[in-house]
Amino acid sequence: MTDLIQLLINGLAIGSVYALAAIGFVIVYSATGVVNFAAGQFVMFGTFAGVAMLLNAQLPWPVGYGAALLAMALFGALFFVVLYLPLRASPVVTIIIGTVAIGITMQNAALLAFGSWPFRLPSPVESVNLTIAGATISGHAVAVVIVTALMVALLWLLFFRTSLGIGMRAVAQDIKAARLMGLKVNRLLALSWILAALLAGIAGLMLGPMWFADTSMGDPIALKAFAATIIGGFGSLPGAIVGGLFVGLSEVLGASYVSSAYKDLISFGIMILFLLVRPQGVFGERIQDRG
């Protein structure tokens, strides 16, 4: 029982990171139709932004986190200006290939800047351990779950209670009509890239203390976030959350109760099962419904 509680919390924590990465992925996909193959590298950049600010620059926690997230937001804006704006009139596949190219560039840039030796990103709450029903639980894991829940709540407020967020939803649903309503469409599109980069940044900062900060960490994250969106329903925000948590839990529980060698097999096996049996995922629209 104590094992199970520990595993559940750890699964939810890693699942939260997948969920945040998946949410960023979905926000960009629904706003622009672009499947962002650099999404995993966004998270890796988030982790290394933390490495740069907290380990290299030795900034105190609040300042370091703030600086890392600011850097990520700027990076999201840069990504929009460098990749999306010049290519926006091209077929969407061209932009998708562009994200692959930038993803590779990002990984190698990080390798060049930080080297191949992994770092350990500390957590502000790593010395805190909680005891629940006899189980010792890492404070970081609990903090990750809380921060993620907070982010989801903030996103909900943004999308459903502010005119900015309603505008972003409108752009995602019908960009031409959004233009006719007088919305500043390009700004809203840029905002969706910035938001995706910010969420990836938060995910990366929280992931750093759980994994080692390694420049090749982006690909496994991208695959897990992708699996999360398939399971939850492609293009669905609630689906990204549920899918992310599900992938995290299945991975941790699978590693413990089956075999750690099979943990990826289990989460990807479930994803393939979904593709075969229910390709629209838990919450999803049928993919062919999108023009």
Partner: peptide, 15 residues
């Protein structure tokens, strides 16, 4: 906008 309520559709046009 199919996924926006009637009121959201209306409020959007006031930007």
């Amino acid at each position: 906008f199919p996924g926006l309520t009637v009121e959201e559709n209306l409020s959007l046009a006031t930007v």
